[in-house]
Write a protein that binds this DNA or RNA. Structure first.
Lengths: 141, 141
DNA sequence: ATAAACCTGACTAAAATAGTCAAGTATCTT
DNA sequence: AAGATACTTGACTATTTTAGTCAGGTTTAT
């Protein structure tokens, strides 16, 4: 099990974004330079974040992105969902040979993965972007 | 983020194994049939489990595998570690351009992944094979 | 006008995953 | 002793996912 870069980059970029006043848009180019993430890849990521209304775009010169909600209201779970980084622990096939269809007959460990999923989602549900920004400014002191 | 089949299969197979008296060895063939996991793949997995002393092998006819410890003492974390399924959330490169080397300069979200890792490992650390076996027999009633 | 910056979709190299395949070795049963 | 069962090991491979790149736009401030 591992977290992919896409999810990590999304969070990194948003923390970077959130650290600036969300009155002036921040350009992806700046984030790219500061965080060392490919600009093209950032664009893919932000396209998804925009569709899920986590950020707002400002086109044209001096444009960029701003947060669409308060940092406190943006939870990690929202970010991960936006970039398709799901915590999927079970993949019991639809055309299940061995009968694990999530309903009547469950595989021996079905409940376990459900529990795990909840456990992880709990974490992502509680953590907000604001928490991360604060965490960084505290460490900076 | 997702759990891979290898880890899931390892747990499924061990729960299956643990449900039988661990006096009579259980053959991989039986597990393969019951759980619908390829025999060849199971062999790879059990080879690793044996090296980490989670199971013991009994060769020859009527052979198979038995648990090497009490089900209560086998934690999920041991199983995942044995089959190389690590919870690796951060992959800050050694030759880091942007300075996240895990020491002096951390990337904006380094602490977050550490926390997450601990959170997940906690779960795996508390859950034993016995818990899973019990969980199944309860549901069976 | 023109440059900065967003926007979109298609493409691709590399890695990981989920196995398969082949050729053993050990041990129990008869 | 022979045969069957079952563990043991290592190499191989198709598929999928990941982590991007690339090309060609559109929008808007100056």
């Amino acid at each position: 099990m591992k977290l992919t870069s896409k999810g990590r980059y999304a969070v990194m970029a948003l923390v970077d974004l959130a650290r600036f006043d969300n009155i002036n848009p921040v350009s992806l180019r700046d984030i790219s330079l500061r965080q060392g993430i490919s600009l093209d890849y950032l664009e893919q990521i932000f396209s998804k974040l925009r569709k899920k209304e986590i950020v707002q775009s400002v086109r044209g010169t001096q444009g960029g992105y701003i947060l669409n909600k308060k940092a406190k209201e943006i939870k990690l779970i929202n970010i991960f969902e936006a970039v398709d980084e799901k915590v999927k622990t079970v993949q019991c096939k639809k055309e299940s040979k061995k009968g694990c269809n999530g309903k009547a007959v469950k595989c021996l460990t079905h409940n376990l993965w459900d529990e795990l999923e909840n456990h992880i989602n709990d974490f992502f549900d509680k953590k907000s972007l604001e928490d991360l920004v604060k965490d960084n400014s505290v460490r900076r002191v």
